[in-house]
Amino acid sequence: MNRLVLWNVDLTLVDVTIVAREAYADAFRMVTGRPLVKLAPAMGRPDSEIVFETLAVNGIAVEDHHLPKFLDALAVSFAAKRKRLTAEGRAMPGAKDALKAVSRLDGVIQSVLTGTIRSNAVHKLTAFKLDKAIDFEVGGYGEEVYPKATLLQVAQGRAKERYGGAFTSANTVLIGDSTRDVQAARIGGAAMIAVASGRSTAAELREAGADIVLPDLSNASEVVAAVARLTGR
């Protein structure tokens, strides 16, 4: 039996907010020649969406070339700062043990469904040694200009192509911290384990329709039991 477990990255597995904000500021300056005044809030959105809004709120008339140039600059800027991640960021409580424990489930495939562009997602997880159980080839990333629900279906398609078998709401689970993650799971076709470790409260996550809400990932047995229950239907 195949099980596909897709993890959100920021505020679910890691918190590197300070470094990420600085990388955005540097990328904005590289692309526009101006200092960044206001960064659009993330709120579980992909980098591609944040870039468009950030340019707009800073008075930049968005043109077709802006997005690829900004994402390239963001990758360069973040890579230059990757050695600061462990000093100025953190792995979320229980993240490493939860990933390791879930990896022991029969037939499990673990990847990411994240608003972060792929290169930066790899840097974030590698810095905290959270990458060992992750198949990055299967994931959905912030440079792909799709809503997160569509990215979820893209990831399911990649998993099918790579591993065979069908991936549906019966054997796919998304683990994330925002109401947008919950909405993506409901629309895209996955069960949802929400962790109240980000900016959404447990009550908000339940109201959005999460199947299971956990306070964080600190109880690995609880995480594994939730994944097993939701992917074994």
Score class of each variant (00 low, 15 high):
N2G: 00
N2I: 05
N2K: 10
R3E: 06
V5E: 01
L6V: 06
W7H: 00
T17I: 08
I18T: 11
A20I: 09
R21H: 12
E22K: 11
A23Y: 10
Y24P: 01
A25G: 15
A27N: 02
R29L: 09
M30E: 10
V31Y: 01
G33W: 01
G33T: 03
V37G: 02
L39A: 13
A40C: 13
P41V: 01
A42M: 06
M43N: 06
P46A: 13
P46Y: 12
D47Y: 02
S48H: 15
F52Y: 11
E53D: 07
T54Q: 07
A56D: 15
N58A: 12
I60L: 03
A61M: 05
V62D: 04
D64W: 08
D64P: 04
H65G: 06
L67D: 04
K69W: 03
K69V: 03
F70Q: 02
F70E: 03
A73K: 08
L74P: 00
A79M: 02
K81T: 04
R82I: 07
R84Y: 14
T86P: 02
E88V: 00
G89I: 14
A91R: 05
G94I: 14
A95V: 08
L99A: 09
A101K: 15
V102F: 01
R104V: 02
D106A: 07
I109W: 10
V112F: 03
G115N: 15
N120D: 11
V122L: 00
H123D: 14
F128M: 09
F128L: 10
I134V: 15
I134P: 05
E137I: 04
G140N: 01
G140F: 00
E144I: 05
V145Y: 00
V154E: 10
Q156V: 08
G157L: 15
E161K: 14
R162G: 14
R162L: 15
G165L: 08
F167D: 10
A170P: 06
N171I: 12
L174A: 14
I175F: 08
I175M: 08
G176A: 05
G176P: 04
G176S: 04
D177M: 12
S178V: 08
D181Q: 02
R186Q: 11
R186M: 09
I187D: 09
A190D: 07
A191M: 09
I193D: 01
I193E: 00
A196I: 07
S197G: 13
A208W: 09
A208G: 09
A210V: 14
D211E: 08
D211Y: 09
I212S: 10
V213G: 11
D216E: 05
L217M: 13
A220E: 08
S221C: 08
E222A: 13
A226F: 11
V227W: 07
A228P: 00
R229L: 10
L230K: 08
